[in-house]
Amino acid sequence: MKIALFATCIVDAMYPQTARATVKILERLGHEVVFPAGQACCGQMHINSGYMDEALPVVANHVKAFEAETYDVAVAPSGSCVASVKHQHPVLAERCGDSALKARAEAVGAKTYELSQLLVDVLGVTNAAGQLGSHFPHRITYHPSCHGMRSLKLGDRQLDLLKSVGGIEVADLPEADQCCGFGGTFSMKNADVSSAMLEDKARNVVSTGASLCSGGDASCLMHIGGGLSRTKSETTTLHFAEILASTIDEPVSVTGEIFVGKGRK
């Protein structure tokens, strides 16, 4: 299968190791990965901040970039960005009166999958240890990000994949379904409320005694990790793609930084 990777802007610029892990997993399964060069961002930050005029060219660019490439399916290691591509892009195009773009956006959206969706529903991966050689001998916990959980209805796909990794121990996160408080520019415009939400999320993560909190969205993980870091906690965050990519021979991570239990060296 030919799979087009949508890296997402935050992963591209801040967490390249997550996209590299995604490539690694898909290539390990024997698929061809392509990277549509024109891609930049899904435009969610603009849309969710109300800057619709500014969002339109961002959305148009995404649609154009993914139309320019030939592929079977597109994938992104982010529930939030995929939800935006699938649900927000057509709505924005309609609001801006561009019905042609709306139809094109719907076509791109229909072929776009979140990583766990692609792995489980399309590629039939249910046992990460067996099918991907995933190995990660650490105690982790897992935060289901809101847009993946509610907008894409991912259910337990990410969590089940993590639980099937060799050597792993997954601790239940109390109040897991509660938002971490990121919400894009919400964390700036309503910083106090966002911090109060983060505080509870970080406390719950620490209460599990896990070395790290995994999840499927780099933005939420940056938020939770940033909060943990500020409180000098040794618990950190790591995208589930990187855990799936980790093997006995090549333990995390593709960046060359080795995860050794508490924190990264």
């Binding site: 890296a7 992963v11 591209d12 610029a13 801040m14 967490y15 390249p16 190791q17 996209a19 590299r20 990277f35 964390s187 700036m188 415009k189 910083a191 966002s194 911090s195 983060l198 505080e199 940056m222 938020h223 990790g225 940033g226 909060g227 870091s229 500020r230 960046t255």
Partner: peptide, 17 residues
């Protein structure tokens, strides 16, 4: 508002792209 209660990691040396 962000950094009142959160750190941001230093950016990587090289983008994925």
């Amino acid at each position: 508002g962000w950094t009142q209660s959160r750190d941001i990691p230093a950016p990587p040396a090289q983008s994925f792209r």
